[in-house]
């Protein structure tokens, strides 16, 4: 017996549909991941960094720009995957009725949703690759370890894409997405070890951060960009793998419940 009898490789057709649409305007779509890190690095790295100076990371003093550059990639992964599978998937589902049309073909709901989440993760990888190119110019990524950012982005993309899709399955209308963004995305963006080390937080803050996926994604990205690893890499990977193996089937289940009436 197959674990998922309703999922076949046909899910790549859904993925491919999104890729075709993406490629129609790839130039415009590539601009944000190219320019955003530059803006952030200039504002935070050069501007704020001159006030901050260095940061202690893994027992070593590193520059503030080197500290935040991998976090910017992790944040982009989170935003790309979450927004793709929340707002964008919701628009396709609710306004464009794209899923309804797909459901009249041999595609199953599970394949449609799996294809969408896979696309969200792919978009996160594409954005990561573009950002890496921009950030490498500043010499802020160590290679070859830095190449691990790509598979890490894919794993993180699956995690945040699945979370976004769960929201899509639950929200009654598009306005409600403000809620998970305000309660889930923004706090992680600020407190997930992104712009200052977790050690600066009070105990309860640090404990909370450990339960948030971005914290682990930031840690993994930083380890790979800086090129040093410790035991936290294993816990981070384990956390994200667990998160994906819970959120992915949940998203499929909830979307099936929403779409099949």
């Amino acid at each position: 017996m197959k674990l998922y009898p309703d999922i076949s490789l046909r899910l790549f057709r859904v993925w491919q549909r999104n890729l075709i649409v993406y490629m129609q305007s790839w130039k415009v779509r590539s601009l944000p991941p190219l320019l955003e890190p530059i803006f952030y690095l200039v504002a935070f790295g050069v501007g704020l960094g001159s006030l901050v100076g260095g940061v202690r990371y893994a027992g070593e003093e590193i520059s503030y720009t080197r500290f935040i550059a991998p976090a910017l990639i992790a944040i982009t992964v989170m935003n790309n995957a979450f927004f793709e599978n929340s707002y964008a998937s919701f628009v396709r589902m609710y306004y464009q009725k794209t899923f309804d049309a797909m459901m009249t073909t041999p595609l199953t709901v599970q394949e449609i949703i799996a294809g969408e989440i896979l696309w969200g993760a792919t978009k996160a990888v594409i954005a990561t690759a573009i950002m890496m190119a921009a950030i490498s110019v500043f010499g802020l990524i160590s290679f070859p370890e830095g190449l691990l950012l790509l598979p890490i982005a894919f794993l993180g993309g699956l995690a945040f894409g699945g979370a976004g899709m769960i929201c899509t399955a639950l929200v009654p209308n598009i306005e409600i997405f403000n809620l998970p963004i305000f309660l889930f995305i923004t706090p992680m963006f600020l407190f997930g070890g992104t712009f200052f080390p977790l050690e600066s937080l009070p105990d309860w803050g640090r404990t909370t951060a450990v339960f948030l996926p971005l914290t682990h994604l930031v840690n993994l990205s930083r380890s790979s960009a800086i090129g040093r690893s410790d035991a936290s890499v294993i816990t981070g990977l384990a956390y994200l793998v667990l998160f994906v193996s819970a959120s992915f089937p949940t998203a499929l289940y909830l979307m099936r419940r929403r779409l099949i009436k």
């Binding site: 649409v21 464009q96 309804d100 049309a101």
Partner: peptide, 9 residues
């Protein structure tokens, strides 16, 4: 289907 669900993209 009843709705016009051509892919607008």
């Amino acid at each position: 289907q009843q709705e016009n669900n051509l892919d607008p993209d």
